[in-house]
Amino acid sequence: MDALVLEGISKNFGALAALTNVNMRVQVGEVVGLIGPNGAGKTTLFNIVTGFTKPDRGRVKLFGEDVTGLQPHQIAARGVARTFQIVKPFFGMTVYETVLVGAYLREKDEDNARQRAEVAMKLTGVYHLRNRYARELNTPQLKLVELARSLATQPKLLMLDEIVAGLTPAEVDAMTALVKRIRDEMGVTVLLVEHVMRFVMNISDRVVVLNYGEVIAEGSPSEVSSNLKVIEAYLGGKSGS
């Protein structure tokens, strides 16, 4: 069963082709890494899946349903949660309130929502910060809170946009363990965008490489890291001969 299928997705910003005929699928239970140089179109692809950006061409399918053109809250209702590359905190809210917003997606009853929020905060290790305001937190903490509120929505597909950027190596290892637990214990499918190779290669079942808006390679972490086109893309060279 496919969690996510992209069929022939293209998106232009004026003259710039951000994505060109992208085909991709993520199976239920997989952890898929999406990599590529700066400006390759990774975040644009996330925006298209989550309904923030409409594709010029192509279809987006979630768990077998065509969801192209739906609004983000409708995508969330279908079981997708997402963290943002540049964190989008609720500065004027406490951590607890922030995570509670996510929990209310599936728990209508306040007590259940609170319980759900507490579980998500404990799992991500931000429970001790619950009464602090987001504006008092640093970036690594904000990233964890963003993960906590995403998990509180009880997603089936979790999309992480550079969740470990700016973290220390020790924090990266902790995040690796956390994402593995989320996959194994909660059965959540994960699609992650990342530049930190140590993280992607360690955690992904499969890696998809974007360059200038096109998929140029796809395979297991070891296949991809030995792929010449990928190495060229990362070295910044346009493929020559």
């Binding site: 809250h73 969330a76 209702a77 997402r82 004027g92 809210m93 917003v101 209310y104 509120r149 929505t153």
Partner: peptide
Amino acid sequence: LYLISIRENEEAAEMLGVD
């Protein structure tokens, strides 16, 4: 709570399922 999340960040609220 939903209204305040909208005030704080519309896109983040929307992504958490807030209409």
